[in-house]
């Protein structure tokens, strides 16, 4: 049985339907990348799966029908979500974020310290307001928070978007570590990052899946490049 199965998922903002009946599945240990242009509906799809947007259709996670579950309950079932933006709490320090992330799993401090070691810069800024961190550091903190709950599936929304190349390299290395610990549903616009992570790929366009296959094959055949060119 797949870890995540999405069937005929539809999401609307007011009267406008953004996601038009998407079907997808993520197997245990798999990396699935959603790739597409801005406004294709990738982030909306991720939020709906995470239980943060109202949707219709069916979402099954780890054998449970979570279609009507709230985001908090889905998270406690083992699904972590890393948003593209607004991934930190303004006014709270880095240490506050780490405490929040392990609140339900106090016994996993060791795990959190292990993940925190991937990003030594965060350890030096524990007392700093997270809102004042650089964009890359905020992404790192989001990673640590999401993984502290030892999830079985991680939804990552453009984790390397808008960061310096050196930080991007760090985040890609962290992504590799994540894929060893959990299944990943990744949204990415950067083809290099997607290729670095590998796995299966779905191309999303106007709220629908228009191509699917192994990312290396789709990239080699030029399908992704043609779909991503405006």
């Amino acid at each position: 049985m797949s870890l995540l199965t999405v069937h005929d998922l539809r999401v609307s903002y007011g009267p406008t339907e953004i996601i038009h009946g998407i079907d997808l599945s993520v197997e245990r240990g798999e990396v699935l990348t959603l790739i597409g242009l801005n406004g294709a509906g990738k982030s909306t799809l991720l939020k709906a799966i995470a239980g943060l947007l109202p949707s219709s259709g069916r979402v099954e996670f780890d054998g449970n029908d979570v279609s009507r579950w709230r985001g908090a309950r889905i998270n406690r079932a083992g699904l972590a979500y890393v948003p593209q933006v607004n991934g930190v709490f303004a006014g709270l320090t880095v240490a506050d974020h780490l405490e929040l992330a392990r609140h339900f799993r106090a016994d996993r401090r060791g795990l959190q310290d292990e993940i925190l070691a991937w990003f030594p810069v965060l350890g030096e800024r524990l007392g700093q307001d997270a809102q004042t961190l650089s964009g890359g550091q905020r992404k790192m903190l989001s990673f640590v928070m999401a993984l502290s709950c030892e999830p079985t599936l991680v939804l990552l929304d453009e984790p390397t978007e808008g960061v310096a190349p050196v930080v991007r390299q760090q985040l890609v290395e962290a992504l590799h570590q994540v894929t060893e610990r959990a299944s990943v549903l990744l949204v990415e616009q950067n083809l290099d990052t997607a290729l670095a992570v590998g796995g299966r790929c779905l191309v999303v366009e106007r709220g629908m899946i228009v191509e699917s296959g192994q990312i290396t094959e789709l990239a080699a055949s030029g399908v992704i490049e043609s779909r991503l060119s405006v």
Binding site: G51, L52, R70, F89, G91, L92, L100
Partner: peptide, 25 residues
Amino acid sequence: TSLGIRWRAAVVNPDLAESMGYSVS
């Protein structure tokens, strides 16, 4: 306190708090 930090988190970024397992409602 831990409770105060959770409450503040739920107020300043409800979606993120919810996605971390906190019941914002």
